[in-house]
Design a protein around this nucleic acid. Structure first.
Lengths: 213, 213
DNA sequence: GTCTATAATGTGATAGAC
DNA sequence: GTCTATCACATTATAGAC
């Protein structure tokens, strides 16, 4: 599984035998199944077929492996942020965004699953190794859901729609599950999310207090 | 926060000064915020105000702390299983179940959040320390979502409704969030989940048990 | 019931040979 | 580019004093 292309980390070096890619692939598997903290470098090295020290030739630290794997997720989230903040789309941008996200999930389900699983670990790693003043795109994105201008009902439905998408991706990748057609899953998710969001104009309307209770 | 009553672990001993309860409370906080593996006994002992060795008087191992905290979740899941398998309710038992679950979330949100955060860690601990032949109720419960007799659409909506409930609970407990009225959250969740499940009738009059002081 | 002290092990990481 | 060997440190857990 190719996770990254030739990656100029520090000096533009390229791995000839593809060990670096294999390390990333194995690490991704283990981080998804066991989590970041529960996975040791010894375990990764063993599965790749090299020694621990060899890992340190390709990566400066264990943290860097995690950050490298999460880079596409960061990119995805940055893209998501840009779409949400685009003032061009006035009203129904949340639904448009969700449809776009569902398409992305089909291509990055494994990476998203890994983020869901190791969100807090990534947070602490990122906070410590902060390379540059940029904040985590994920945090910025999630902060949207805390907007006090939104009603509780809106926030629940927005957060819920994200949760549904992630849950759908996770469902399709369960160990015992048969292969699920990504297109069918995307189609199902689009309708389900639309039901949850009530299909109509999305939340940005400031005043929409729910009647219940 | 009282997590457990006097617990007869091994010989019916009761802690006089309530240290055991404080250990559980502190551990719960840390496990939710940092995760199980990322939390050390030293950290727990420090926050409780005792030494590491003192922890080993109250619990045989770190695993046992986790298992003790998860016991109410196990109980909740066993109860959920019983409800779902009850042949008395013919068709719309899933919605009934969801309404019940939403009520439970209000009372156990912190424990459920901890389960979500440490699901795989708990899985491995439980697999290793398997005391008795009983399987994890959580796994049994989730296996319902893999039923091949269900369509992908149904499975996505069922898993999605669970995800929405958990996401709602998590949303309400976010660090920056103002206090959210549990009753309002439950009400919102009931409607939202009903939309997702395409269930017609609005939620029945919530039979809320007398709230504690 | 809690302490001090220490054992036993695994971890991430580094140095230097080849 | 990968290896062997090792370091420094944190971890879970135990033994025994008080």
């Amino acid at each position: 599984m190719l996770v990254h292309g030739p990656h100029p980390s520090g000096g533009g070096r390229v791995d000839g035998s593809g060990t670096r890619e294999r390390i990333l692939a194995v690490a991704l598997d283990l981080f998804v199944e066991q989590g970041y903290e529960e996975t040791s470098l010894r375990q990764i090295a063993e599965l790749v077929g090299v020694t621990k020290a060899a890992l340190y030739y390709h990566f400066r630290s264990k943290d860097e492996i995690l950050l490298t794997l999460h880079e596409p997720v960061h990119e995805l989230m940055r893209n998501a942020m840009a779409r949400l903040e685009d003032p061009a789309s006035g009203g129904g941008m949340w639904m448009t965004f969700l449809d776009w996200l569902i398409d992305q999930v089909a291509a990055h389900s494994r990476l998203l699953l890994m983020y869901q699983r190791n969100a807090t670990a990534l947070g602490e790693v990122h906070r410590k190794d902060h390379r540059g003043p940029e904040l985590e795109p994920e945090q910025l994105f999630l902060s949207k859901l805390r907007d006090p201008a939104l009603s509780l009902d809106d926030r629940v439905r927005m957060a819920g729609s994200l949760a549904v998408i992630v849950a759908g991706a996770a469902l399709a990748m369960q160990p015992g599950a048969r292969t699920v057609d990504p297109a069918e899953l995307a189609s199902v998710l689009r309708v389900a999310v639309r039901d949850l969001m009530r299909a109509g104009p999305p939340p940005p309307a400031p005043s929409a207090p729910p009647p219940p209770a």
